[in-house]
Design a protein around this nucleic acid. Sequence first.
DNA 1: GTTCTCACA
DNA 2: TGTGAGAA
Length: 112
Amino acid sequence: MSNKFEIDPFLDFDLLKKLVVGIGEVSDITGVPTRKIRYWEEKGIIESEKDGEGTTRKYNYLNIKKILLIQELVEEGFTLDAAAKKVQDRMKNINEVFHKLANTASNKEDVD
DNA sequence: GTTCTCACA
DNA sequence: TGTGAGAA
């Protein structure tokens, strides 16, 4: 594993961190129906944020990634509980890489 | 567009 | 496990 990442000028991690969409957008992006997304959250396998109004769930890149992971695992034949467990473990790596990438992208000009 | 609940397969 | 329909 290399501890150095190549930064694509087309990848905007600052935008990714700010990217927050509603359940409708998530269903369109992930291909998962809104009922299913709410159903998963109801089971507690995923979490979502609320907007300033306190209504309508908001999903960021990590949430969408999580939903995508769950969807893929379930498609493979895993049950929601098993998929959620695997995703939870994998999300740690996702968060770590994501923050590392975002930090590196912000300091990509800081080269010796 | 979103939320919730009840009910069904 | 996932969806349909009704109501706000």
